[in-house]
Simulated scan of single mutants.
Amino acid sequence: MKKSLIALAVLAASGVAFAQSSVTLYGVADAGIGKIEAGGNDGSDKTEFISGSTMNNGTSRLGVRGVEDLGGGLKAGFQFETGLDLDNGAQANTAFWARQANVWLGGNWGTFKLGRQFTPSYLTTATYELTGTANYSVLGNTYNYAGIGLRANSAFAYVTPSFGGFTGALAYVTKTDLGLPKAAWDLGLMYKNGPIGVGLSANKVANSKTNYQLGGKYNLGNFALAASYTQASDQAQLRRRGFGVGASANFGAFTATLDLTRDTKNEWTGKKYTNGVAELKYALSKRTFVYGAFLRLDDTNNYGIGVRHNF
Rank of each mutant, 00 (worst) to 15 (best):
L150D: 13
Q79N: 14
G83A: 13
G149T: 05
A7F: 12
S51A: 07
N211S: 08
R99F: 05
L123G: 05
P161V: 00
A126N: 04
A146T: 03
N250K: 15
P161W: 01
A226F: 06
Y191A: 06
S121M: 07
V67P: 00
R262I: 00
A249G: 11
R287W: 01
F96D: 08
Q231S: 08
Y122I: 02
W268D: 04
T264E: 08
N211V: 07
S51M: 01
A169M: 11
F243A: 08
S137A: 09
K286I: 04
N57L: 02
G147I: 04
Q100D: 10
L214W: 08
A90T: 14
R151E: 11
M55Y: 11
N57W: 09
N93V: 05
A98C: 06
N193H: 12
T167G: 03
V173T: 15
G246S: 05
T59H: 02
G276L: 11
Q231K: 09
S137Y: 00
A202M: 12
Q235A: 01
Q117V: 01
L180Y: 12
A12R: 05
N266F: 04
A92P: 09
E129L: 02
G168R: 04
G52T: 09
N135F: 01
K281W: 09
H309I: 04
T261Y: 06
G115R: 03
P195W: 13
T160H: 05
A38M: 13
A183V: 14
V10Q: 15
Y158G: 07
F49C: 04
F166H: 05
Y282R: 13
V159T: 15
V16S: 09
D186Y: 14
